[in-house]
Simulated assay, not measured.
Amino acid sequence: MSNLRIVAYLKPSCGWSNGVRAILKKYNLPYEDKDIINFPEYREEMIMKSGQPFSPCVEVNGEMLADISGQELEQWLIAKNYVKKIDKPVDVPIDQACSGEHNHGYPVKVNFEL
């Protein structure tokens, strides 16, 4: 739909982010892809708008969908009647984490000193 304003806060290479991109492509929805890894100001903007640090976050017409998978995004778009469900396959999994996703890409610091 041309009346949708979509801003996606995504990592350049991540299972969750690629799933969101795949859904937006599947439904031919134009969107602004804000790279939160290479542009820290976009990550800060995402945190400020969503109230949390986890990605992907997708803003649709001012409504923030925080920490969402491609599968969840598709379900939400259909439920809001922004798109009609189509059975077109996508080229990547839409609900898969990227490697290291348990710590959301940040190093885990373990202190073994007692």
Rank of each mutant, 00 (worst) to 15 (best):
49 K>I: 08
67 D>A: 05
65 L>P: 01
106 Y>H: 06
51 G>T: 13
52 Q>N: 12
13 S>G: 14
97 A>F: 09
87 D>S: 14
2 S>W: 12
91 D>A: 15
36 I>R: 15
59 E>Y: 02
66 A>G: 07
36 I>V: 15
52 Q>E: 04
93 P>W: 06
1 M>S: 07
13 S>K: 14
57 C>Y: 05
77 L>D: 02
86 I>P: 05
37 I>A: 15
15 G>H: 05
97 A>W: 07
70 G>P: 10
98 C>F: 13
16 W>N: 11
84 K>L: 10
114 L>Q: 13
48 M>V: 11
85 K>Q: 09
36 I>N: 14
49 K>D: 12
32 E>P: 05
14 C>T: 08
25 K>H: 09
65 L>H: 01
63 E>G: 07
2 S>C: 06
72 E>V: 00
92 V>C: 04
4 L>P: 13
9 Y>G: 00
65 L>C: 01
51 G>M: 15
95 D>V: 00
11 K>W: 04
18 N>S: 14
80 K>N: 14
20 V>G: 00
64 M>I: 00
50 S>W: 11
84 K>H: 13
24 L>E: 05
69 S>K: 11
93 P>H: 08
78 I>H: 01
5 R>A: 12
93 P>F: 04
75 Q>L: 01
61 N>L: 11
64 M>T: 02
54 F>G: 01
32 E>T: 08
99 S>C: 13
26 K>W: 05
105 G>I: 12
49 K>E: 09
52 Q>I: 10
76 W>A: 00
97 A>L: 08
35 D>E: 14
75 Q>T: 04
1 M>N: 15
24 L>S: 04
58 V>Y: 01
10 L>H: 03
37 I>N: 07
80 K>Y: 09
35 D>P: 11
69 S>E: 07
4 L>T: 10
61 N>A: 15
10 L>C: 10
31 Y>A: 09
100 G>I: 07
50 S>T: 11
6 I>R: 04
75 Q>G: 04
4 L>D: 06
35 D>N: 15
37 I>G: 08
111 N>L: 07
95 D>E: 04
9 Y>R: 01
5 R>D: 15
34 K>Q: 12
16 W>A: 11
